[in-house]
């Protein structure tokens, strides 16, 4: 699914800096992942048979150390982008076609995370009934959400993805 892709966008020239992770032909590059989240992001994105390259503790002018995850042959669907927004809100996403970056954007921050993470309140009704969790973003730095059911507020880092 490429719903975030606008084909009319002009292609961006590829990053002139020295590549720290091997280039891919088609697929998605998730860059600027906070160091400790890199493996989590890779796990989240990789499906069976996906070819994934991971770069950890890479140098970054913006964030000191960062992680990069490259996934071949696939672009991210809306749900995956939402999950990415929750665990790595600062990450950037590049869509690669024929080795060219055709689109680059920071992970879009939804207003509401629907069925993305488990509510961290053990007594929340969404943990006891078959009902999707819904959490509203109340602050983006640090990313903080409020469960619309139990009305508890959590840091995104306290939540487990569904």
């Amino acid at each position: 699914m490429v719903d975030r892709l606008r084909p009319s966008d002009p292609p961006t020239s590829s990053n002139p800096r020295v590549r720290q992770v091997e280039a891919i032909l088609h697929g998605t590059v998730i860059d600027h992942i906070p160091g400790h989240m890199t493996l989590k992001v890779a796990n989240l994105l990789a499906r069976e048979n996906d070819q994934v390259s991971i770069g950890m503790n890479l140098r970054s002018a913006r964030m000191g150390r960062k992680g990069v995850v490259k996934i071949s042959g696939r672009e991210l669907d809306a749900r995956t982008l939402s999950r990415l927004a929750l665990i790595a809100p600062s990450a950037s996403v590049s869509i690669i076609r024929d080795t060219q970056v055709v689109q680059k954007f920071t992970v879009p921050m939804p207003k509401l995370f629907e069925d993305i993470a488990r509510c961290a309140n053990p007594n929340c009704v969404t943990n006891h009934e078959r009902w999707a969790s819904r959490m509203e973003v109340v602050n983006t730095d640090p990313l903080t959400v409020c469960c619309i059911y139990c009305e508890r507020t959590f840091l995104a880092t306290e939540l487990a993805l569904l």
């Binding site: 309140n121 007594n123 009704v125 969404t126 006891h128 009934e129 619309i148 139990c150």
Partner: peptide
């Protein structure tokens, strides 16, 4: 209801008004 948020859940389903008489430790 003993669970936090139960009344909100019920209100999303019900076509008649739901009045929360206490949902867990919430409201």
């Amino acid at each position: 209801h003993p669970r936090d948020g139960a009344a909100r859940l019920a209100s999303e389903i019900s076509t008649v008004p739901v009045i929360n008489g206490g949902d867990g430790g919430n409201q």
